[in-house]
Amino acid sequence: MGKPHCTFFVDDVEAVPVETLGPGIETHPPFPSKTNLHSVQVIGPARIRLRIRERGGGPFE
Rank of each mutant, 00 (worst) to 15 (best):
R51G: 04
T7C: 06
P32E: 00
E19M: 06
T27L: 11
T20W: 05
L21K: 05
M1P: 12
G22I: 01
M1D: 12
A15T: 07
L50P: 09
P32Y: 01
S33C: 10
T27V: 11
G58S: 02
N36R: 11
T7V: 14
F60R: 08
C6K: 06
H28Y: 08
D12E: 15
G44T: 07
C6E: 01
P29G: 08
I25R: 11
G2N: 05
L21F: 07
D12H: 13
V42G: 05
T27R: 15
E26W: 09
P32L: 00
F31T: 03
V18G: 08
P32M: 00
C6D: 01
V42L: 12
F9Y: 14
I48V: 14
S33F: 12
P45I: 04
T35F: 02
S33A: 09
P45M: 10
P29H: 09
P17C: 00
A15D: 13
L37S: 03
I52H: 08
L50T: 10
F31A: 09
R51A: 00
L50I: 05
C6R: 04
G57W: 06
E61H: 09
P30Y: 04
R49T: 10
E26T: 14
V16N: 07
K3T: 15
V40S: 03
L37V: 05
I25F: 02
E14T: 15
H28G: 02
P59T: 01
M1G: 14
T27N: 11
I52E: 11
H28C: 03
G2V: 05
G58R: 08
G44N: 15
V40T: 10
G56H: 13
F31H: 07
F8V: 10
L50H: 15
D11W: 02
F8I: 13
K3Q: 12
E61K: 09
E61G: 14
V16T: 05
C6G: 03
F60S: 09
P17T: 02
T35A: 01
G56E: 05
H28Q: 06
F9A: 15
H28E: 00
P30T: 00
T35P: 11
G56N: 08
F9W: 14
Q41V: 00
N36A: 08
V40K: 04
V16M: 13
R47P: 02
P23S: 04
T35E: 00
E14P: 05
E61T: 07
S33R: 15
T35M: 06
V10A: 13
I48G: 12
V13N: 04
A46Q: 10
T7L: 12
D12L: 09
N36E: 15
R55L: 06
C6T: 11
G24P: 07
I52V: 13
H28A: 14
E54A: 05
G22E: 03
K34C: 02
V40F: 02
I25G: 04
I43P: 04
T20A: 09
G57A: 10
R55S: 05
N36H: 06
F60H: 05
D12Y: 01
R55N: 01
